[in-house]
């Protein structure tokens, strides 16, 4: 446990000192909120901003998770990992600490995006709803960062990982339910969107804002998290010994 906290603390300190990275990671989701959320003329809802906020929050977690995937790979390439592996702290805490940091960083960014959304006119929810929203975002963040870290460790090369990141981030976003409800999608898109894990998280947050409790989605995310953490731990063990 000490190990996990120490690894997270290191990453948060480093992140906080890179001011450009902190701001730049917020630009894209904020731009979506303002330029799409406020400007897109849609017919299916009276308040498009409220409709798109869950999608943008999940997108923020997605970008944070995918860009964080390279962190552990860099620790490996730069020789940090060898030092960490020779320490008595459990080796799995290196991986868990990293996934929790990436997820935590995503949640910080999502909070700022949420604040911007409220400033430009999104509806305020009650504290319990925010609590459940954060739970969903957290579970989704663990899923994405576990997935991204596994891929990066497996590819073992920064350029390949960057290419992979560019390749999947936009398609994942556009084939989710972030921008429109299933009812107005063409049939083929609706089919893909229902399978897209982003949609699970987005739909879950929408259910929360509508006053419900997305038990099914949370359970599904929990199962996926467990599965991906198990895979990630396996790959991690394989590349470290």
């Amino acid at each position: 446990m000490n190990g996990i906290v120490a690894y997270m603390k290191r990453d948060f300190l480093k992140w906080g000192r890179g001011r450009v990275a902190v701001v730049s990671s917020l630009v894209m989701p904020a731009a979506w909120l303002v330029f799409v959320g406020l400007a897109l003329p849609v017919q299916f809802t009276g308040n498009y901003l409220d409709f798109i906020v869950p999608g943008i929050l999940v997108m923020t977690m997605l970008t944070a998770g995918l860009s964080g995937g390279a962190l552990l790979m860099f620790d490996k390439i730069l020789g940090f990992l060898n030092k960490f592996l020779a320490l008595p702290a459990p080796r799995s805490s290196i991986l868990i600490g990293k996934i929790l940091f990436i997820t935590g960083r995503g949640l910080v960014q999502a909070t700022i995006i949420l604040a911007i959304a409220l400033l430009i006119g999104a509806s305020l929810l009650d504290p319990v709803q925010y609590g459940i929203t954060y739970l969903v975002l957290f579970l989704f963040g663990v899923l994405i960062s576990g997935f991204a870290t596994t891929i990066a460790l497996y590819l073992e090369d920064h350029d390949s990982y960057a290419a992979f990141n560019t390749m999947i981030s936009m398609p994942l976003f556009f084939t989710s339910s972030a921008l429109m409800p299933y009812s107005v999608m063409p049939g083929w898109l609706a089919m893909i969107a229902r399978l897209n894990p982003l949609s699970y998280a987005i739909d879950a947050v929408r259910e929360v804002t509508a006053g419900g409790f997305p038990a099914g989605a949370i359970l599904l995310l929990l199962v996926l998290d467990a599965a991906f953490l198990a895979i990630c731990l396996r790959v991690f063990r394989k590349v470290t010994i």
Binding site: A6, L13, G18, F80, F84
Partner: peptide, 23 residues
Amino acid sequence: PQDMAVDIKLTGRENVRFFADLY
């Protein structure tokens, strides 16, 4: 190890404290 791996965005004290916490 051979490759020098210290976090350049952290101070000397923070780098050592990090290891103290891990140990």
